[in-house]
């Protein structure tokens, strides 16, 4: 902030100020802000001079510490799941796959089996029994069914609020995009409302409802980058009916948002815990409850293996997302 701006603002005669200004302009304006009203002080205080030297280092340091805090335990968990034992600071013993096999339910475990439920299939002719991790497949299918509903629900509503202007649009948009009901509240609400509904069906409905905002956000961002009115009118003027226009022109053009929305919804639904924990009563277990039982009841290594299964899924999904042009899960910053 230069001094002549200040004196102009004060409305002082400019001629009087010139002399003053010439002497002041060569030294730091030490009293700029304090004596002349609202203009911020340009004096570089101790903290500010400190920030010139250390500001960047400090911020990059915060970033580094945060990254270690967030990702360090993920790597440690993954590594720990392959070791015989882990006491103290470093893993010990030999490398083993036993924890993974136990977590996946591929081998018998002593006592209450906390592995994923398995189908034992007899291979004909050999007398061998092969154990397949059935429960993990089941819970992945549950999440997939939730994504199916998300698509049916999310694409139309995303189009309606992006393309059209109508009464109540902002409210509808807010309800569709903001996660209104926390999972645990929805779970309590479900307990008595649909008491006879199988757990699987209740879980699918809950997943689709809780994850719809992510689908709507992803699809909306695709629709927003398109010239919707022009596309719609071109297709209509070429003779396509409106349903045909919507299904064969508009929706395929939003492919990117739809794909990334589906991936995000599927991954988050597979690991949804709060709602599943309250609502689940019988039948094959959802994946998140399997994780919970491992974490709260099992030896550290087997829990690490179980959690690592999910890490692998997320890593795979993140790679897929990056292939569709998204940067990880950043589309859904809100839960």
């Amino acid at each position: 902030m230069t001094d002549d701006h200040v004196s102009d603002a004060d409305g002082e005669p400019a001629a009087d100020d010139y002399g003053v200004m010439e002497t002041e302009s060569h030294e730091p304006a030490t009293d700029g802000g304090r004596t002349r009203g609202d203009v911020p002080s340009a004096s570089n205080g101790l903290l500010d001079r400190f920030s010139v030297v250390f500001g960047r280092r400090f911020l990059v340091g915060v970033l580094a510490v945060t990254l270690v805090f967030l990702i360090g335990p993920v790597l440690l968990t993954f590594v720990a799941s392959f070791f015989q034992s882990w006491t103290g600071i470093a893993p010990s013993g030999s490398l083993t796959l036993i924890h993974w096999e136990q977590a996946l339910g591929l081998v018998e475990t002593v006592g209450a089996s906390r592995g994923l439920g398995t189908w034992v299939v007899d291979v004909p002719g050999t007398g061998l029994a092969v154990r397949l991790p059935a429960s993990i497949a089941f819970s992945m299918l549950l999440a997939l069914a939730g994504v199916g509903i998300n698509l049916l629900v999310g694409i139309p509503i995303a189009y309606a609020v992006t393309r059209y202007d109508f009464y109540g649009r902002d409210l509808l948009n807010a309800v569709a995009v903001l996660p209104i009901v926390p999972g645990i509240i929805l779970g309590i609400a479900f307990l008595r409302t649909y008491p006879n509904l199988p757990s699987a069906a209740a879980l699918v409905i809950g997943y689709s409802l809780l994850k719809t905002p992510y689908m709507v956000l992803a699809v909306q961002s695709s629709f927003e980058s398109m010239e919707l009115r022009q596309l719609e009118e071109s297709a209509r003027s070429l003779g396509a009916s409106w349903p045909r226009t919507f299904l064969t022109v508009l929706v395929p053009n939003a492919k990117r948002g739809i794909v990334s929305g589906s991936i995000i919804c599927w991954t988050l639904a597979a690991a949804e815990f709060n709602f599943s924990y309250i609502v689940y009563s019988r039948g094959p277990k959802p994946f998140s409850l399997f994780l919970f039982e491992n974490i709260s009841n099992n030896p550290f290594q087997r829990a690490a293996a179980a959690v690592s299964i999910y890490f692998l899924i997320v890593a795979l999904v993140t790679a897929l997302l990056r292939a569709t042009g998204e940067r990880g899960f950043s589309t859904g910053g809100v839960r």
Partner: peptide, 17 residues
Amino acid sequence: VTLLSFPISLPGIVAAF
């Protein structure tokens, strides 16, 4: 950025672990 977004996909029980 990808690494920072990783924990967003993790449920609370995994954060606890």
